[in-house]
Amino acid sequence: MAEARTIEQAVEFITTEMLDELDSVIVDYRGTPGSLIPLLQRAQEICGYLPAEIQRRVADGLEISPSMVYGVVSFYSFFTMKPRGKHVVRVCLGTACYVKRSDEIMQNLSKELKIAVGEVTGDKKFSLEGVRCLGACGLAPVAVVGEDTYGLLDPVTATDILKNY
């Protein structure tokens, strides 16, 4: 059942163009030892995330078992099995940021975007995630949108950063 649902989601978020591109990429990696992680990275670049259907496709393509693929995907934090928006909003929940009320920033962003942590907005523009210390504690509290870092945020006005996108 769980699988059926993810595939439905996949249909929603993953286009046939993406699948075609993925298939052609898989061919390049086939037969090369150690190709699973780089291929999964490419797959995530193409599809945005790695749901069951994409993992199966990679497994079939490399003729390895889907369990092995899942083991790797679930081990590395840079892989995600949930769909992501065009812009990923990450709020630091590390200690330094937390004491500076980054949890409130998270709540406000969640309210503003009308999604819970880990979800994607209906227009697929934003998704919201919590992260561990980003190594910028001097700027705490910190949030990141895509590649852009925003520091010294005020919990109340933090939602303004979304306006840049």
């Binding site: 699988e3 369990s67 083991g71 081990f75």
Partner: peptide, 22 residues
């Protein structure tokens, strides 16, 4: 040679299962 099982997740959440716990 079936490779049906895998160690998934990491750290304290590590467990033995199949893809997506099927």
């Amino acid at each position: 040679g079936a490779s049906e099982l895998s160690m998934v997740n990491r750290g304290i959440r590590t467990k033995i299962t199949t893809d997506f716990d099927r």
